[in-house]
Design a protein around this nucleic acid. Sequence first.
DNA 1: TCCCAGGGGCCGA
DNA 2: TCGGCCCATGGG
Length: 233
Amino acid sequence: MKEHSDTQQLQEIYQRLLSHYGPQGWWPLYNNKTRRIEYHPGDYSFPKDKEQSFEVSVGTILTQNTRWNNVERVLYNLQHERLLTKHALHSTPEKKLALLIRPAGYFNQKAKKLKAFAAFAGEISRSNLLSLWGIGKETADSILCYAYHLPLFVVDAYTIRIFRRLGFQETTYESIQQRVMQECKGEAFFNEFHALLVELGKNVCTQRTPSCPVCPLEKACKKVGVTVAARSS
DNA sequence: TCCCAGGGGCCGA
DNA sequence: TCGGCCCATGGG
């Protein structure tokens, strides 16, 4: 019935994005051998240890409302200073940290957020993460999904924008997350789906003038709220 | 020059 | 609950 077709709708969107972009290889991690931050397409075994989980968590905080490009500079800074461990970050003065993470923007706030996370010693759970200063729904779910392999779908501004333009009824964080997680299953799916939506939102379904003619979801899209120029050009 | 980015806290209605 | 404002660097 309705549920069945909706499930097919999400699956079809996922498949179209996947065949268009390919596996995204999230979450990118620093490789000690190549000394580069690398994606690992199709390999969902990362992060592999506690340090990598911590690195991903740091990245989720740094990338709040910030381009990943800027976050990478900071991660290289922190790697160079050997600060990408819970203990090292915990024992680093907030002032010094703020200077190192400057390129990621909001550096004073993010320094405080990172310190709060590094000081946290309890169990990694959604409610515990949400109780920390600086960690909201998206960051908490990102940490759970990408740092700790929990099957959770992360909703972000891109996801909300894309769902709204597609013409879906679900346009809030909770409703979108609930629908995706009811109709789809699996850590790998949630990992990949969010990453694919980010890729689409970054390069095609952009804020101002989305590139509808080259969008892999063009046929299924209602283009709600999209300007006439973007629709026809 | 302006806009926006892989948000979240805080405040007033 | 919800909108508005603030945080800040860097690229198009």
